[in-house]
Amino acid sequence: MAVTKAKKAPTEGAPVFFIMLRNMLIGLVSTVATTLMGAAAKGDWLIMLIYLRGKDGPDKALPSFLAPSTNGTAEHSVVDEFLEGYGMKHLHLFILMGVAGSFIIYYPVGGFWHWYYYVKRRDQAHEWKCQPNKFLTKENEAHAVMMGSFNMMLGGTLSGTIACYIVNGGYSRLYFSIWDYNIAYTVLSTMFVFMLNEFTVYWSHRIMHMPVLYKKIHKWHHRYIQPTAFTASAMHPFEFLLVQCLMAAPIFIFPLYAGSYVGVLLWTYYYGMKDHSGIIGESQWPWQQDVMFHDDHHLYFHVNFGMNTKFIDMMYGTVRKKDREYSEDIFYGFGREKTETKAQ
Rank of each mutant, 00 (worst) to 15 (best):
M235D: 06
A142V: 00
F334K: 07
M315W: 14
Y107F: 12
K138H: 09
L213R: 02
Y202K: 05
L154K: 06
R223T: 07
Y107G: 01
L154A: 07
G85W: 10
D180R: 03
P250Q: 05
D290I: 00
M314Q: 13
T157S: 09
G57S: 06
L136G: 02
F82Q: 08
R324S: 06
G160K: 07
Q288E: 13
I280N: 03
I253A: 09
A33S: 14
L83Y: 12
Y165W: 14
C164L: 06
K321W: 09
P10Q: 03
G272H: 09
T157F: 04
Y51I: 08
K7L: 15
I178W: 12
F17P: 00
S102R: 08
M1F: 10
L299E: 15
G13M: 14
Y257P: 04
Q124A: 11
K89I: 04
G43W: 02
M146Y: 08
L66I: 15
N151K: 06
Y202A: 03
L242Y: 04
R22S: 11
T157D: 02
D296H: 10
Y271K: 01
A67K: 14
T31W: 02
V303T: 15
N168Q: 07
K89G: 03
I217Q: 12
I312Q: 05
K274M: 15
S277G: 07
M48P: 00
T73V: 02
V262K: 00
D44M: 01
Q288H: 12
E84R: 07
S149Q: 07
W220K: 06
L96N: 02
N140F: 10
Y269M: 01
A2Q: 13
T309I: 11
V119W: 07
S69W: 02
M152A: 04
K129L: 06
T11G: 03
Y332Q: 00
I50Y: 01
Y106S: 05
D44C: 00
D56V: 08
V29S: 00
M1S: 11
L136A: 10
K342G: 03
L83W: 10
E81G: 15
Y269W: 05
M97R: 08
G170R: 07
H222C: 04
F17N: 00
K8Y: 01
K129A: 15
D295P: 04
T11F: 13
T186M: 02
I104W: 01
Y202F: 13
E139S: 13
K5M: 09
